[in-house]
């Protein structure tokens, strides 16, 4: 079995460099044959694309997509400096 450390590094690079994703802020953890993706993105389509790219970069491993969607709320209280 490939060392999990290198699998995680490969998936992380793929997410950053693949034009379908270009996501730099996704945390990738590999435990045995399980890959965990964590972070925040703006829409569901991007969330699924990240999972697809991760699957391609880690064939044969089970990918858990734990990425959440950023909820962009209406502006709140202002800060007085």
């Amino acid at each position: 079995m490939e060392t999990p450390h290198y699998v995680a590094a490969r998936v992380q690079r793929a997410l950053a460099e693949d034009d379908r994703t270009t996501e730099l802020g996704i945390r990738v953890d590999v435990r045995g044959e399980e890959v965990y993706l964590r972070g925040q993105v703006s829409c569901d389509e991007r969330r699924h694309q990240i999972e697809n790219v991760a699957r391609e970069a880690a064939p044969g491993l089970r990918v858990h997509n734990e990425i959440t969607l950023v909820e962009v709320r209406e502006p709140g209280e202002e800060e007085h400096l």
């Binding site: 802020g25 925040q40 703006s42 950023v70 909820e71 962009v72 709320r73 209406e74 502006p75 709140g76 202002e78 800060e79 007085h80 400096l81």
Partner: peptide, 25 residues
């Protein structure tokens, strides 16, 4: 100098408002 990181995933709002020179906007 006050520094503010306004990356969308940090502020979680469409924008944040900072008021300069005064207590009330």
């Amino acid at each position: 100098i006050r520094v503010r990181n306004v990356a969308l995933p940090v502020i979680k709002h469409a924008y944040t408002v900072y008021c300069l020179n005064g207590d009330h906007c």
